[in-house]
């Protein structure tokens, strides 16, 4: 059984249909990537799964439970969270308070303290900047914070929306290393990326989204060698 299953998902902005009945699934232990051009609907898909934009038709099933109508704030508790596009860290709060926000649904104080220590070891820079106002971090550091913040809720499934956006090549590699690492420690990953080459190189399976519909899907390595994908997304 799939950990996350999307069936015939349709999302509208007013009269405009952004998602035109897509279906896909993420199995436990996988890294699945969703690639596609600007405006294809990747962010819309991610946001509708977490209840940030309303779903018109279709179903989202997580861990066997239909969560299509579950309010967004209850979804984190089920073990799924998201690093949103553009990071969206709380700019006016400190690094430490951002991490505490990530643990909003965790009640055990000791657990939270241990988790913050662990995150600050995983991301050294966050440990050094604990009391800094998050808005003053560099873009790369903010991405680390956004990922650390999401990890605070111990998700079984972590969704990341363009985590490499706007980062220097060195930081991009770092972000992908972190994702691989985190996956190894037992978390299922759904990754949205513009950087299709990188995404396909760490993923198990992939879906290609084109103006609201899935045009291609399969094993990541097969897509890496697919002529159409190469032409459209890998710049070859």
């Amino acid at each position: 059984m799939a950990l996350l299953e999307i069936k015939n998902l349709e999302v509208f902005y007013g009269m405009i249909q952004a998602i035109k009945g897509i279906s896909f699934e993420v199995n436990e232990g996988e890294i699945v990537t969703l690639i596609g051009a600007n405006g294809a609907g990747k962010t819309t898909t991610m946001q509708s799964i977490m209840g940030l934009v309303p779903i018109k038709r279709g179903t989202v099933t997580y861990n066997g439970q239909d969560i299509t109508k579950v309010p967004g704030h209850k979804i984190v508790n089920l073990g799924m969270t998201q690093v949103p596009e553009g990071r969206r860290i709380f700019q006016e709060l400190t690094v430490y308070d951002n991490l505490l926000m990530g643990a909003y649904t965790v009640k055990d104080k000791k657990q939270i303290k241990d988790d913050i220590d662990e995150i600050c070891t995983r991301f050294e820079i966050l440990g050094q900047r604990k009391n800094q106002i998050a808005g003053t971090l560099s873009g790369g550091e903010q991405q680390m914070l956004a990922m650390g913040r999401a990890m605070m809720s111990h998700p079984k499934l972590l969704m990341l929306d363009e985590p490499s956006m706007g980062l220097s090549p060195l930081f991009v590699d770092k972000v992908f290393d972190i994702i691989k690492d985190y996956h190894k420690s037992g978390t299922t990953i759904l990754l949205v990326e513009q950087n299709a080459k990188k995404a396909l190189s760490i993923a198990d399976r992939a879906y290609v989204l084109e103006t609201g519909s899935i045009s291609l899907s399969g094993k990541a390595e097969d897509l890496l060698n697919n002529e159409d994908v190469k032409k459209a997304y890998l710049g070859a």
């Binding site: 946001q47 977490m50 209840g51 940030l52 309010p71 967004g72 704030h73 209850k74 979804i75 984190v76 508790n77 969270t81 998201q82 949103p84 969206r88 860290i89 709380f90 926000m101 990530g102 909003y104 649904t105 913040r149 809720s153």
Partner: peptide, 9 residues
């Protein structure tokens, strides 16, 4: 929106 993602009602 980001607060909602943290589980804030």
């Amino acid at each position: 929106g980001a607060a909602l993602l943290m589980g804030v009602n």
